[in-house]
Structures are given as C-alpha cells and as structure tokens.
Design a protein around this nucleic acid. Structure first.
Lengths: 305, 305
DNA sequence: TGAAAGCACAGGCATATCCTTGAGATGGCG
DNA sequence: CGCCATCTCAAGGATATGCCTGTGCTTTCA
C-alpha cells in the first residue's frame, strides 16, 4: 500500500542521490530508507533507482514519478496547513445558532465583530426559532447557540443565562397604556401574537402561561402570525395589542408602529438570553469566540445577569 | 503523523455520516475506523465530527478539510496511475545508449519504431561515442546500450554481439581502389580519420591496431577530425583516404563524396555491434523493447551474427 | 418503555515499522 | 592494489500500528 512515508523517502533519496544521505536527513538508519524504497518499488511495480555499488542512480521512471510524489506530499501538507489555519480561526466556517429576536438585537453587529477579529472566516448564523436551534444542538448540527429562556429544554444541555430583557405590553391605544398591565387584564385583552408555529415553545408565551397559571385565566389571541414584525405592524394599526421583549419593542415600534407605545407588566416578566450547548462538550475555539462576542453584544442591549 | 489511510477513513465517514457504514465500505470493523478518525483529529488538532450518541455529524472543520483530503488522495492515486502507465510503456521516458555510427545507421528508424508502438513515450538516444556510452552504463546513468566492438570493455558488463559490419578502405583516387587493401599498404597510406578525441577507444582504430600488431608498422593519419561526416568529405576532396565501416560508407559516400569508392581490406576486418548492460541486471520492459528494436534495425543493415 | 442502532472504550493479538549490529559485495580513489 | 564509501542482506528486538471482539453507554424509534 502506497504511503506518504515511502514518498518522503523516495524524494529525499532522489534529491541526495544516496540512501545514506536521505536517511541522515530524515533521521532514520540507512537500511530503513532502503526498505521504504524497496517497498515503494514493489507496490508501484517499477524500478526507481539503479543500484551501482556506490550510491544509487534514479531511473527515468523516478524522473517521471517525482513530480507526482511532490504533488502528493504537497497536498498532504496543504491538508495539514488548512487544519492549522482553521485551528487558529484564520479561515474556515463558524456556525452559531441564534433565535429570531436575539438575532434581531445583535446579529449584524455580532457578525461584524467576528469579521473584524478574523477577516478570513465564513460565518453562518443559524436558526429562525429558538426551538429549531435547540433541535440542531441536540442533533449535533450546531455546536453552541444563544437562545431565549424559558423555552424548550431537554436533558443533556448546558444552559448559561447571560442577560435578561423585560417583557412589555404594547398597544396603539393610549388608554391601554395608562398604567402597568396586570395579568388579570392581560387575559381579557385582544392580542396579536407572533411565532404561531412555535407557540408552545416560544419563550414569551411560556412566560405568560406561567404567569396565568393557577388563575384559571388564559390568553386570548385574536390574531396569530409568524413574524414579530407583522405582529407589531398589525398592533400599530389597531387590530390588537401584543406582548414582546422590551428590546424588540424598542427596535420595532418606531419603524412599524410609530404611534404605539408600551408599558410594563405587573408582575414584571423577564425573558432570558442564555448560551447553550451539549452538556459535557469541549467547545472549539471558534465556538468560545462566538459565545464571548454574542454575550458582549447581548449585554449591551439587555440587562446582564 | 498524517497518513493516507486516515484520510480515506475520514472521507468514507464524511460521506456516509457514520463510522459503521464507513467501516463496512472499507472492510474494517467500526472501532478501527473510529481509531483512525481519532488519530487524524489528534494529528491535526481539530475536531472533525461531533459524536451524538447515534451517528456522527461532521463539523464545519470537516467541511473545510474534505476538499484537501480528496485532493491528497487523488494525487496519491495519480502517482500510482503514473507508475502503472510507465510500467506498460504508455508514458515516461525511454533512455537508450547508442554510439555515433550505430546511431547513424539506425537512430531515426529506431526512434520511429518506438514511437510507432508506444506513441506516448519520450525517447532519449544518448552517446556521441562508444566510450562515453560505456561510462554511462558503468555509472548507472544508462540501463542498456548498443555499442561497437572491439572497444573499451570493463568488468561487470554483459556484452551480446548482434551483427557485424565489414570495415572498408575508402578513397577518391580510383587507383587506390583497384584491389583489396592489404595491411602493409594501409600503413603507408595517408589517412584522414574521425573520432580524434576517442582514438584509443574507437572500434575501427582498435581493429586496425590489432591488424598491424606484430608487423612493426603503424598507422599514418594525416588529418584527425571528430566527425565521420567531415572525414568522408575531406576524403572525397582528395586530402587523404579513410577507413570506416561499410554501412557508414554506403550512407555517407553518396552524399559527401560522390566520386569516391571503397574496397575491402585483406584480411577482412569486422566491426561488431553489441548489446551491452550491467552484468546481472534485470532489464526493464522499456530496455528490453529498445534492445529488440535496435537489434532488428541493425540487423537489417549489418550482417547478423 | 423496550429494542435497535451507533459509538467509545478496553483488552488482546498479529503484523509492521524502525532501530541496531554485523557481514558481504561493489565500485571509486589514491 | 588496498582502503573507503555505500549498498544489500540478515538477525534480533523494541515499539507502534492496525484490527478484532466484547462491552457499555447514549440516542432513536416503534
């Protein structure tokens, strides 16, 4: 079987015209190199050197094969170098999970931060939804992610909260915003809510469910949509009120519902941002980097914990 | 240390997304492949797959390294294929030794014969002079050759005569050609002879020396030149007579000395063509081919022995 | 919740690799 | 012609490699 070691011995011998010199360069004993050459000649079925008592002389076959051997070794070296570059985050792809609202807060800045420090890398920010990110983590498609809590959590995940964001009540009707919104009145409100598909996993909905738990009340959602942007726009047009993290409200309301406003809930509810990855996993340098940068970005917008 | 085997296991695993499937394809047990992957990860210092209980998932590092691994294996395969092609004389270089006059007789036809049967090869016909060819053989730079005999012969060479060519006396003066040239009259002739540099090794001169040995006579060379062509041309212009193999005379006289002719010597002298290579050497297919074709060509012109 | 799939780990065996040493052959060189 | 350099070959041993079997853990799926 052809081996890189054989090719290395071959080239060293070719260049020095001597097994002894080749062995010296490679740090082996001369019979070892001799054996490698013989093995190579046998696997290829050709004679590479003519043994002429003193020294060896490359045959024309050796002349022909030398460029191929060099290219093979160069390709192997390239493989090694590529791995080193990836290791030092000079190149390669960094894939990181981030659910919708977190991406909205910090996505562009996070990518900019990464490229600032590591101009050669590719960046993939994965995940429309926290629950999807979670699934990718569980299946191993993602190494680490920034998710919203509370939400789906399964065994074997390590979750580290890094910031919290108050959940607020937003409305286009100023009379709805005269005082903080209580849970009791919330249950009577006519709401337009996003994340329809993920309604059972969505962190805001989970928070509201928990707050309503034991009161016998439940949420009235008049309109269900997927995108927070659409929910906010509908709220702005007066089709209903909505509940969303304060950070999202500050970003979306001026743009999509300029006449609307928001108030706190009573009791206050908090959406948490957390770093999550498989429990017991040793994180790659790239993942550590992403966690560090994403945490820094999130903590500029939301309150660190 | 990076190995081709590791890369093969890596690619098989990457493509199947499973160590078990890769092992099956490669014909190994699953732990063997697992070990190879682990070894590769260790030598490269990166994680290639995420182990997720059931199955393995390639990391982005694996995505990045896969093309490099493929190229390395392709280069190795290329090396192997190049060797196979050389082995079957489909490509590569055939180097063969042939001294001046033999090349003159059969050189172009011999190369044409080779290229007819093996269109992909390169051909090198080496050697201005029999003695130089001999040195190349001894040093291993040449595998085999067609030489003139008698000439220099050292120990350790296997010499097989394949044809003989009568040595003739050529002159532009018809009175010199009225009867066969005796050795005695030869010693009195005014000669123009080629192969000045190699005069002690040249086979025609060696033959003449042997013929004159014991007579007390010696050769008179009026003019010494290197090329047989120049010697013949000078002879044609009447500056002296010359001695050369009959085959060479038949080729050169019509072209360079149209009014000259030649006669036999008495006793007749014969120049021998011989195949020669290092004793005990196993010849490559390419060398066998050259010997076969060169012999056939020479035997068409000179008398087989 | 049990069965099946898939991987890691451990133990063990066979072989390969690489080393050393020493003897023998061969060719170059003074 | 003898010495030196260099290669081959052989023997022997230490170590590494490659591979297998068996086992246990985790995850998936019915």
């Amino acid at each position: 079987m052809l081996s890189l070691h054989q090719l290395r011995c071959f080239l060293a011998t070719y260049e020095h015209g001597s097994l002894t010199a080749a062995a010296e360069e490679l740090g082996y004993a001369q019979p070892s190199v001799s054996e490698q050459i013989r093995g190579l000649e046998q696997t290829l079925g050709v004679q590479l050197f003519r043994r002429v008592g003193r020294g060896v002389i490359p045959t024309t076959v050796a002349d022909t094969l030398r460029p191929h051997a060099e290219q093979t070794l160069a390709a192997a070296e390239d493989t090694r170098l590529a791995a080193q570059q990836v290791r030092r985050i000079e190149t390669g792809t960094i894939r990181f999970g981030m659910f919708g609202v977190a991406r909205l807060y910090a996505g562009a800045d996070l990518v900019a931060d990464v490229l600032e420090r590591h101009p050669g890398v590719r960046v993939e920010l994965i995940g429309q939804n926290s629950s999807e990110v979670h699934e990718d983590l569980r299946r191993g498609r993602l190494e680490a992610a920034m998710i919203a809590m509370p939400g789906v959590t399964s065994e074997g995940m390590e979750v580290r909260p890094v910031a919290r964001d108050e959940v607020v009540y937003a409305s286009a009707d100023p009379t709805h915003l005269e005082r903080p919104m209580t849970v009791r009145r919330l249950a009577e409100a006519s709401l337009v809510m996003p994340e329809t598909t993920w309604r059972t996993d969505d962190s805001v909905r989970t928070l509201l469910r928990q707050a309503l738990q034991g009161t016998g009340l439940s949420l009235q959602t008049r309109i269900e949509v997927e995108d927070p942007e659409i929910a906010v726009e509908l709220m702005g047009r007066g089709y209903g009120d909505t509940v969303l993290p304060k950070g999202a409200a500050e970003v979306l309301l001026p743009r999509l519902a300029p006449h609307a406003g928001f108030v706190s809930l009573r009791p206050r509810l908090y959406d948490y941002f957390a770093v999550v990855h498989r429990a017991g996993a040793r994180l790659s340098p790239a993942a550590e980097l992403m966690i560090e940068l994403a945490t820094a970005r999130i903590q500029r917008i939301a309150e660190p914990v």
